[in-house]
């Protein structure tokens, strides 16, 4: 079983590549840098936004990376990427959030090669009050960002097998 120190070590190794990957994906795709705000341990006091995409990664460690956005941020992202004005959470909105998560996870993985991570396919959960399950022995963390298209949050948790 992983010790607290081991879990902390995994988190420390993963947090910076995940934040850097998020910045790179937003800068490359939309031409601006999101501003990192709060970083902390994920608990019920920090609820997910209305749309959350989760992607699993497994290798020498296992876990998930989530990208969670309010509707207005997701709609703005779709508009920015494909020039479509959305007014409801439809397939294109969910797909866009999922693809951003895929790119963030893929970019982070390239700097976490020692973990030999394989990416799953993104799944999208919508609606107020939803929750995401992480591996039981992981300690999920969240990072909030502000950006030109609005706020969003990353949540990630990993543990050893």
């Amino acid at each position: 079983m992983s010790t607290t120190a081991q879990l902390a070590n995994i988190t420390v190794q993963i947090v910076n590549p995940v934040i850097a990957a998020t910045t790179e994906v937003f800068r490359t795709c939309m031409g601006y840098n999101p501003v990192r705000r709060e970083l902390g341990l994920k608990d019920k006091k920090t609820p997910y936004f209305a749309i959350t995409s989760v992607i699993g990664l497994s290798g020498r460690v296992t876990g998930s990376i989530c990208l969670s956005l309010p509707q207005r941020t997701a709609f703005s992202a779709v508009h920015r990427m494909v020039d479509v004005q959305c007014t409801e959470v439809d397939q294109l909105v969910c797909d866009t959030v999922g693809e951003f998560t895929n790119m963030i996870a893929g970019t982070a993985r390239s700097t976490l090669q020692e973990f030999e991570l394989e990416l799953g396919l993104p799944n999208v959960v919508t609606g107020d009050g939803h929750d995401i399950k992480f591996p039981q022995r992981s300690q999920p963390m969240f990072v909030t960002f502000n950006s030109e298209i609005g706020p969003f949050m990353l949540v990630f948790g990993f543990c050893e097998h």
Binding site: V82, L92, D95, T96, G98, E99
Partner: peptide, 13 residues
Amino acid sequence: DDSQMTRMIITKT
């Protein structure tokens, strides 16, 4: 591509 968004971007280009 399984991403509709990415297919749209490539097709538009």
